[in-house]
Amino acid sequence: MYEHILVRYGEINTKGNNRSQLERLLLSNIQNALGQWPQIKVRRISSRTLVSLHGAPVEAVLGKLEKVFGIRSLSPVMAAPLDVAAITEVAAQVLEEARHLGSTFKVKVRRGNKQFPLDSMELARHVGGALAERFTELQVDVHEPNVTVHIDVRDDGAYVYADVVEGAGGFPVGMSGRVGALLSGGIDSPVAVWQAMRRGLVVDLVHFHSFPFTSERAQRKVEDLAKTLAGWSGSLNLNLVSLTQTQAAIRKSCPEGLRTILLRRMMFHISTALGKQYGWLAFVTGDSLGQVASQTLSGLHVVDEVTDLTIIRPLVAEDKLDIIRRAQAIGTYETSILPYDDCCSLFAPKRPKTQPKRDEVRLAEAELDVEGLIAAALQAVEVKKIDRDA
Rank of each mutant, 00 (worst) to 15 (best):
L50G: 05
V90A: 09
L74K: 03
K108R: 15
R99M: 10
V107E: 03
S52R: 13
L62G: 05
V68S: 05
T104M: 06
V68W: 03
G63N: 14
A92Q: 05
L74G: 06
L74D: 08
V107H: 01
L50Y: 03
S75A: 15
G102D: 07
S103K: 14
K64P: 07
K64S: 10
G55R: 00
S103V: 11
T49V: 15
L95R: 02
E89A: 15
S75D: 07
V84N: 11
Q93I: 10
G63S: 12
A60M: 10
R72N: 14
V90T: 13
L65Y: 02
I87Y: 01
M78L: 15
T88M: 08
F69C: 04
A56N: 00
G55S: 00
T49K: 02
V51M: 05
R72Q: 15
R99K: 14
L95T: 09
S73I: 13
G63P: 07
S75I: 10
I87H: 01
A92P: 06
E96W: 09
E96Q: 13
A91F: 08
V51C: 05
V51A: 00
E97Q: 13
K108P: 08
Q93T: 14
L53W: 00
L74N: 05
A56D: 05
T88V: 07
V77A: 11
K106F: 02
S52Y: 12
E97W: 11
L65W: 01
L62K: 02
A60Q: 14
V94A: 12
S103Y: 06
L95V: 10
I71D: 09
A86N: 04
A56M: 07
L101E: 14
V94Q: 09
D83R: 08
P76V: 10
P57T: 00
K64M: 09
L82G: 04
V51I: 12
G102E: 07
T49D: 12
L95P: 09
E89Q: 14
R99Q: 13
A85K: 11
V90N: 02
S73V: 12
A92R: 00
V90H: 04
E59L: 08
R72D: 15
V107Y: 00
S73M: 13
I87N: 01
K106H: 05
V51K: 00
L82S: 04
V51Y: 01
E59P: 07
P76C: 09
K67H: 12
A56Q: 03
P81Q: 07
R99N: 09
V51L: 06
K64I: 04
A86R: 09
P57A: 01
G70Y: 02
G63A: 13
E66M: 14
I71P: 03
A79E: 14
Q93C: 10
M78Y: 01
M78V: 11
A79Y: 05
S103R: 12
A91M: 10
G70S: 05
L53R: 00
A79R: 15
V58T: 11
G70T: 01
A60V: 11
A60N: 13
L65P: 06
V61E: 07
A98P: 09
Q93W: 02
L62S: 07
L62I: 14
A91Y: 08
A60K: 08
A80Q: 06
S75N: 04
K64Q: 12
E66D: 10
P76Q: 00
